[in-house]
Nucleic acid binder design. Structure first.
Lengths: 190, 190
DNA sequence: CAGCGTTGTAAGCAGACGCTTACAACGCTA
DNA sequence: TAGCGTTGTAAGCGTCTGCTTACAACGCTG
């Protein structure tokens, strides 16, 4: 646990290797989900030997947990509640250059079980918890779950199924329709 | 291609074996999706040797195609357009004893590619096409896609993620909220 | 500089996967 | 009843999976 040099051009840098694995895993888990990402792919993208993945993280599931723990709460912490829905919607509609891919990872790992399922559950609960603060209806949490479900469904049908015209539609048009419909769900009564 | 005896208690009955494989595959594909269902599981549930699966269907993908082709268009043919959304919604909310699991299969196979992806695409297009007849808005098809996306998202979050309170909510409550919100999407301008 | 923990590499293990092959048992027809 | 196509079985092929092991290279500390 001594101080580590930060200069580039290094070899034998455990911290850099860990980070490379984390970055590679975040990218691949978001693109393919947990099951369809192999430890060999992650190690190859990170440019390191695959056995190091197990040395530093113990298992593929533990790596997944580390990835989600890092990226999952970033958007929640960075986005005010009243903008979370539209921000997340736009984030999923615009695949390019989005730094936060927590929901994408969530979606593409929806078939997995084990620890991956547990983590998915927690991420979903946190998003829904924030969305629930947007309405004062007695069933606020159910409404929030339904809104989140729509988000996931749109991303599912658009990015995974490629259903037209949704897949090629203008994000603005989608936002307009969805936000109009969710007004009855998430607005305050006052 | 001669006539086949239909009496029970038979052995060496190719038609019955084919049907057993089809039934077993339909059940498992709906429950686990394409990738997570193995040909060994299908053959075991059908009570036949797994090599017969390849004799009668050629490949796992071809079996999937046969399953979808059979069950996919049943609900579409049996349900009038104006009831398709609520019927499908209730069908997905009530997992027990539902004869039609086309959308469930669609959902749980969302991670697969290859022929499975193509078939998914077609099933989605057919559902959306019917839903699009419910509104006379110029962007009717986009609205239909969004409605279908909500269906899929609700099923995803409810049955796969198990997010509460959605997962344990009364189907009636869900239907009420969702149908109220989709009124702005799918109603006619009369 | 000797010793030793740390970082990295190469090879391989056991199991699961889709699919194929070789062959046995059955039953129709000539 | 002899022949032959059909139905079913058992075994295994090649590949991929997550994960482990054995070992080499490095660099700090005594």
């Amino acid at each position: 646990m001594t101080a580590q040099s930060e200069e580039p051009g290094r070899k034998r840098d455990a911290a850099a290797t860990r980070q490379a694995l984390l970055d590679a895993a975040a990218k691949l888990f978001a693109e393919r989900g947990f099951d369809r990402t192999t430890v060999r792919d992650i190690a190859k993208l990170a440019g390191v030997n695959q056995s190091l993945l197990f040395r530093y993280f113990g298992s593929k599931e533990a790596l997944f947990e580390a990835v989600i723990a890092r990226s999952g709460r970033e958007q929640l912490a960075a986005t005010p509640a009243e903008r979370l829905f539209s921000t997340s919607l736009r984030s999923m509609l615009d695949p390019a250059g989005q730094p936060n891919r927590a929901l994408e990872t969530y979606l593409r790992s929806s078939g997995s079980d084990g620890v991956a399922a547990t983590i998915r559950h927690e991420v979903g609960r946190e998003y829904a918890g924030v969305l629930a603060t947007l309405t004062d209806a007695p069933d606020a949490e159910l409404r929030a779950d339904l809104a989140l479900a729509w988000l996931m469904g749109i991303a599912l049908v658009r990015e995974i199924s490629g259903l037209e015209p949704l897949a090629g539609a203008d994000p603005d048009d989608i936002c307009r329709l969805v936000l109009a419909a969710t007004k009855t769900l998430l607005e305050r009564s006052e």
